[in-house]
């Protein structure tokens, strides 16, 4: 579904991602794990076009998307939940969700998707008329995921959904990520620091170290791998 071929991305002169090769198959959850500054977020930003790659190719369903503007990429069906949630603080929850459906014109389908995200996160329905900025961290993350779902993406890019959340909330959110993948058949690209949890949820995983992919395997195999255990799982 998505393929990265020798992608390199720079911030000015600083290279954050070095010749990354990566594949995402239809309907799977894949995860990219790594330490701080390994280039996880940059990889996602390259896919979504916010920080376009300098070299290499990104193919979505066989079609090159590197060099397209971010809004075109969203229109193709790739939606990103940015790191740190980035909800619209002054808009109400309902308006935030409506912004997610910005590019869609099929009102009936949008209304149905709204019902769906409210069923995933009932708390959002309760708070639908409150400004997004008044929600707790966990609720904001739920809102950010829901907002991205409102774009009805084929590929959902999740950037550190566990950031700053209590373990219980994190587990709940990961449960729902799995549910979205199952029920909507949405392919999910998950970037996480919490490698343990991410590998439990994912089908396959990639390990990123200082901008390079050092390992990739099935998620359970990675969890069993001695090096990964020592470096990321704290075992």
């Amino acid at each position: 579904m998505l393929e990265l071929k020798k992608v390199s991305t720079y911030y000015g002169n600083i290279q954050a991602v070095r010749d990354i090769d990566l594949r995402v198959e239809e309907g799977e959850i894949i995860t990219l794990i790594g330490a701080n500054g390994a280039g996880k977020t940059t990889t996602l930003m390259s896919i979504s076009g916010i920080v376009p790659p300098k070299r290499g190719e990104i193919l979505f369903r066989g079609r090159p998307i590197h060099g397209l503007s971010p809004d075109r990429i969203v229109a193709l069906g790739i939606c990103q939940v940015p790191e740190g949630r980035h909800i619209f603080p002054d808009l109400t929850v309902a308006e935030n969700l409506d912004m997610g459906a910005f590019l869609r014109r099929d009102r009936k389908e949008v209304a149905r998707d709204l019902e769906y995200v409210y069923s995933l996160f009932p708390i959002l329905r309760e708070r639908r008329n409150q400004p997004g900025g008044n929600l707790s961290g966990g609720e904001q993350q739920m809102l950010a995921i829901s907002r991205a779902l409102m774009a009805r993406p084929q590929l959902l890019l999740l950037d550190e959904p566990s950031m700053g959340l209590a373990p219980l909330v994190t587990r709940q959110i990961f449960e729902i990520i799995r549910q979205i993948n199952r029920e909507q058949n949405t392919t999910i690209f998950l970037v996480e620091q919490n490698a343990n949890l991410a590998l439990k949820v994912a089908d396959r995983g990639y390990v990123l170290e200082t901008g390079r992919i050092t390992m990739h395997d099935r998620a359970d195999a990675l969890r069993a791998n001695k090096d990964v255990q020592r470096a990321y799982l704290g075992i």
Partner: peptide, 14 residues
């Protein structure tokens, strides 16, 4: 309005 509030989110919303 969205642009005023958050540019990155704006882009992520297409």
């Amino acid at each position: 309005f969205a642009l005023r509030e958050d540019e990155i989110a704006c882009q992520a919303m297409g």
